[in-house]
Write a protein that binds this DNA or RNA. Structure first.
Length: 645
DNA sequence: GCTGTGTTGTTCGT
DNA sequence: ACGAACAACACAGC
């Protein structure tokens, strides 16, 4: 038998340290060894990824490629611009591959894709080696030890984890890698079909597929320029080198590491942030979860005095991550949506997802059942709600790709059960696009947690956008950083600027006016509703939803007959009007839309959703951001661009 | 069936 | 600063 010719297929493990798949590949003693990344159109076009995460991903790829080259001048990350499903069969033949090695992926698409590749490899006589690696325990084993059920609580994770076994100690990075063999690419590239393109940030046509191995014929990592994506606005950078530096910084502060308690960290802190900022590295695998786990364990072993415990400790945070992976492992695609999800409570939120009942999956489009809710959603997304705490967080999310965990709680509660009564799936879509650390399992899980549809049920505990931030930031330094137009307002009004007398507004050079749709310079919008009124309405409705007690897989939830069960829970219009009257005091027109028929109101659609609904007539690039938002008569996007500077 | 606890609420009292 | 009431869910352990 000839010596192994091995492809190390990298997807979720952009690192050299503690890499089980890499080690398994090297253990084969290959005569030829290629580190390969396939440029999957599913990610390039069909996953919502903002400019900051594109930057972070390509940072990780470039850093890994450089690190490989340091080990062997002839080697690097071979980034090939084609879908793995069509590429690998050709590559197996052209490079005479004997083994394909990769880290086990966890999300439903990843599992489907890998099943296709494994089959193709077997047909080509290529041996496949799959190594679990990106979670503490293999999520499928965790489910098995949890009696075949999804992991829904931290105690279940701890119990099942004990049964699965010890968490492996991290391995160090290899000191050398074998030469690659031929890099002959004399086969046809299967053209990629870009439509529909979910990338709202894409400014120009994507060119990353123009040549199979890149514009210079060197397998290089694509630039944002090639992708047609504008420069990142975040300062946070990716790569294994960065990740290990950051981890060491955290671990060298032994007291911080040993006594970390999540609920006590401040969501208003910045530089340094009160949490580790390691989650994006866990997502892309530029940091090994075991390196993190055992690094903390080593500090705990030496620490004298009290240390924190799960679930609030650093290790507890990692356990929560495994919990969400363990829920998704069992529930599959349904975990990321309400309908057909038998563990997600059905709540008749506004703006619910459309579902394809054939595939039982969401289409990416949604029902605009209430124009008012759609407007609230847009104002939430673009940081123009008129609640400075919420707006500052949403602007931070967009600019930095990161917000503190408790900040995520605040905006998620506000959008769903504690304010807007809008489907958590709308919020999850926005987080998917903008978060550097977006992880589909954690995102879906946390949104269900915060919306009290799974994992958590105390819906009467509701975050106030005024009181909550005051606990850690009385003067609103955090708000002022992201809403600088409020910087000269007296501190006592910083979380409720609409209460500032006109004289104070004048002195501060800001007018609290307008509905956030077309903000004039020197203004900050009025709040889009009375918060305590909305909180009461939401809690009432949650109570009803809990009483009705439907889950996402219930036929009544799916076929729409749930409506009869919620008949007496309509919103009281009188309450709302009292707030609107109050807001008219200074003579400004109150523009909160009250178009109950929806007539004359052009629905705003997300780019990909629009394309998904129509039958593909849209030319790519036709659906520009500004055009899309003009449909609402709304120049929020204009505000966004301005604020980027 | 009862009781205590659950990573991360708010308001009001002392 | 701390504790209780608010109005009240789910689950584990007994």
């Amino acid at each position: 038998m000839s010596k192994p010719r091995v492809i190390w297929w990298i997807r979720t493990d952009l690192r050299l340290h503690d890499n089980l798949a890499l080690q398994a590949a090297l253990d084969l003693g290959p005569e030829a060894f290629w580190p390969v990344w396939t440029w999957d159109p599913k990610y390039v076009y069909r996953t919502r990824v903002g400019c900051n995460r594109w930057q972070f991903l390509t940072d990780c790829q470039r850093n890994l490629s450089e690190s490989i080259t340091k080990l062997n001048k002839k080697s690097k990350l071979f980034l090939i611009r084609e879908a793995p499903q069509t590429l690998f069969p050709k590559l197996f033949k052209a490079w005479k591959i004997t083994h394909l090695v990769f880290e086990k992926d966890t999300d439903p698409y990843g599992k489907d894709r890998d099943a296709v590749i494994i089959k193709a490899a077997q047909e080509a006589g290529v041996e496949v080696i799959v190594k679990h690696g990106r979670t503490l325990w293999d999520s499928d084993e965790l489910v098995e030890k949890n009696h075949g059920k999804p992991l829904m609580s931290i105690s279940q994770v701890q119990a099942a984890g004990l049964k699965v076994g010890d968490i492996a100690r991290p391995m160090s990075a290899p000191i050398s890698v074998p030469d690659p063999g031929t890099t002959d690419m004399s086969f046809e590239q299967q053209p990629s079909i870009p439509k529909p393109d979910f990338q709202r940030d894409r400014e120009r046509q994507d060119k990353s597929y123009e040549k199979l191995i890149g514009p210079n014929g060197d397998f290089a990592v694509p630039t944002l320029e090639e992708l047609g994506i504008p420069a990142a606005t975040s300062q946070i950078r990716g790569g294994e080198t960065e990740a290990l530096k950051q981890l060491n910084k955290i671990l060298s502060d032994k007291k911080y590491t040993a006594t970390f308690a999540k609920p006590d960290t401040a969501p208003t802190a910045f530089e340094p942030q009160s949490t580790t900022l390691l989650s994006p590295h866990l997502h892309f695998g530029s940091l090994s979860i075991r390196e993190f786990w055992w690094g903390v364990q080593n500090v705990l072993k030496e620490h004298k005095g009290k240390h924190s415990e799960p679930p609030t400790s650093l290790l507890g945070q990692l356990l929560f991550r495994d919990m969400y992976f363990g829920a998704q492992a069992k529930l599959g695609y349904s975990f990321n949506q309400t309908l057909y999800n038998d563990h997600c409570r059905f709540v008749p939120w506004h703006l619910p997802s459309r579902v394809d009942h054939e595939t039982k999956r969401v289409t990416g489009d949604y029902h605009i059942d209430s124009p008012e809710a759609e407007e609230w959603f847009q104002r939430w997304k673009w940081g123009r709600t008129g609640f400075p705490w919420i707006d500052a967080l949403m602007r931070q999310l967009r600019q930095e790709g990161w917000i503190h965990h408790l900040g995520r709680h605040a905006v998620a509660c506000f959008l769903t059960r504690g304010g807007c009564y809008i489907s958590w799936e709308r919020g999850a879509d926005v987080f998917e696009e903008w978060l550097l650390d977006h992880e589909s399992a954690c995102n879906a899980g946390n949104w269900q947690w915060l919306s009290c549809t799974a994992f958590y049920a105390q819906y009467y505990r509701c975050y106030s956008p005024i009181v909550f931030p005051q606990k850690t930031d009385k003067d609103g330094a955090f708000v002022i950083r992201y809403c600088p137009e409020l910087k000269d307002l007296p501190a006592k009004y910083i979380y409720e600027p609409w209460k500032a007398p006109l004289q104070d507004q004048k002195k501060a050079g800001v007018r609290i006016t307008g509905d956030g749709k077309d903000p004039e310079k020197g203004t900050y919008p009025k709040p889009m509703f009375d918060f305590s009124e909305r909180r009461n309405i939401c809690i009432e409705r949650m109570k009803t939803a809990y009483k009705v007690n439907l889950y996402g897989n219930d036929s009544k939830a799916i076929d729409g007959t749930w409506k009869t069960l919620f008949a007496d829970s309509a919103e009281g219009p009188t309450e709302r009007n009292s707030f609107k009257d109050a807001m008219k005091q200074d003579g400004d027109e109150d523009n909160i839309q009250q178009d109950d028929t929806g007539k004359g109101h052009e629905a705003v659609k997300e780019k990909g959703e629009e394309a998904a609904e129509t039958d593909g007539d849209n030319k790519r690039g036709d659906i520009g951001g500004s055009k899309r938002k003009r449909a609402l008569g709304c120049t929020l996007d204009g505000f966004v661009r301005k604020s980027k500077k």
